[in-house]
Design a protein around this nucleic acid. Structure first.
Length: 390
RNA sequence: GGGUAGGUACCGAAGCGGUCAAACGGGGCAGACUGUAAAUCUGCUGGCUCAGCCUUCGAAGGUUCGAAUCCUUCCCUGCCCA
């Protein structure tokens, strides 16, 4: 068993802000397992590496014998967290939320130890509330407090709308902390405000206040904006090894350092060649969500496909020709069947005319031509997509 | 409720009767260069049976040879006042 100070040091690692370390120490010294809370909204059905950052921290708590309390915000998702938002989040229907919640938890347990996780849905307590309860809950906070919040302030300053339901969000999230008696609440840095409200709520309930533990926000593939599904700059935890590997390889060197600290909890070895370092990063991350075997397979595949550009040897999706034999038709068919991606005709035309499409390494730009398709031919669609004809 | 400013393509933002599928910027995609990187340069960025045609500028009507641009009604948002 590790000492309290070792534990504290490990828990503090990689955090962006903790309020406060002293409180955390005090709680740890008590020797009782802590209740570490992480709330997630099942707004998007798929988890990505950005979500993985706080989940990893939560797992660390589990490893030290604490209880992970994972709250699925089936109720809060109906509101939509305004954190970091410059506009109102769309509200989801209960059906969508239910559906998302399922896939969400399945994926979260790729990281968390399911047996040591207390899974809660906040609809459990909120759906029972009467309007009177809601009013009373609201009486606990002031308008001024809510307006202190940066997101709201900014929107108000920019003359953008702020809907009343949005200012309910922190109150609701805060109440979660009371209901699950959280000792620590984890979250990304944009959760500071929400989590602090939780502390206030606990205080007014005469409870010991939770420690706020904030994790940095992981930038997406573009290296600028935070990783999010809606921005399309994400790596999903369920993505195939090759896909995941490829995406990781496409990040900038600068971003790679971030990923090292936040995803691997390690420092980037500055002496290594950036590409080697990146390959290692990719391999480690893929291992985490798949298996070591699949990870090294993905590495090999990537090298064959992109470093050596040896598409003969690469493991590519196979394509059965469809009805059409003309270039435009085949390319469209390839996107649809091999990559499940529907593109408009104009889009395909553009791609072809701009020289993205190559047959066995040769650019082919005549839309209507009907090349002599042969089994084994390699057709490049765009930078990342290739198929082999069957 | 009163006053006022607005609603334009993925986003921001021009346009204010024809030359508008709609300037410009961002984003995205592609090409060149590379380490499938970044940066940079270039091109593309509504759809289609693509030298042509069809559908877009909050919605529905109307005026006109012709509307994103004018009129009417409606819907939505900001700001000021109450």
């Amino acid at each position: 068993m590790s000492s309290i100070s070792d534990q504290l040091e490990a828990l503090m690692r990689g955090t962006a802000q903790v309020i406060s370390e002293k409180e955390l120490l005090k709680k740890l010294q008590r020797g009782k397992p802590l209740r570490a809370k992480l709330g997630v909204d099942p707004t998007a059905p798929d988890l990505h590496l950005g979500h993985a950052v706080p989940l990893e921290k939560l797992r660390q708590f589990q490893e030290f014998g604490h209880t992970a309390v994972l709250i699925i915000g089936d109720f809060t998702a109906l509101i939509g967290d305004p954190s970091g938002r410059s506009k109102t989040r769309p509200q989801l229907s209960s059906e969508e939320v239910q559906e998302n919640a399922r896939t969400f938890t399945d994926q979260a347990f790729k990281i968390l130890d399911k047996d040591k996780t207390e899974l809660r849905f906040n609809g459990e307590w909120f759906k029972k509330m009467t309007f009177e309860d809601v009013i009373r809950l609201n009486a606990r906070v002031t308008m001024q407090q809510m307006l202190q919040r940066e997101d709201f302030k900014a929107r108000i300053a920019a003359d953008q709308e702020v809907r009343l339901h949005e200012i309910q969000y922190p109150i609701v999230q805060g109440w979660d902390s009371v209901m699950v008696k959280a000792d620590v609440e984890l979250g990304a840095t944009d959760q500071l405000f929400n989590i602090l409200v939780g502390r206030d709520m606990q205080k007014s309930e005469g409870m010991e206040q939770q420690v706020v533990m904030l994790m940095p926000i992981l930038e997406g593939l573009d290296g600028v904006q935070k990783m999010s599904k809606s921005l399309g700059n994400y790596i999903g935890v369920t993505e195939a090894p090759d896909e995941m590997f490829g995406k990781l390889m496409s990040i900038s060197d600068e971003l790679m350092g971030r990923y090292y600290t936040l995803l691997l909890g390690a420092e980037l070895d500055a002496s290594a060649h950036p590409m080697d370092a990146k390959k290692q990063l990719a391999e480690k991350v893929v291992t985490r969500f798949h298996t070591p075997g699949e990870a090294s397979e993905a590495l090999k595949n990537w090298e064959v496909k992109f470093s050596k550009r040896d598409h003969e040897a690469a493991d590519l999706p196979e394509l059965m020709l469809g009805e059409r034999r003309d270039l435009l038709g085949v390319v469209g068919h390839a996107y649809e069947t091999a990559f499940d991606s529907k593109r408009s005709g104009s889009d395909l035309r553009r791609l072809i005319q701009q020289g993205s499409v190559q047959l066995n390494g040769e650019k082919v730009t005549d839309l209507k031509s009907e090349p002599d398709w042969k089994s084994g031919d390699v057709l490049k669609l765009d930078k990342k997509r290739f198929v082999r004809l069957k």
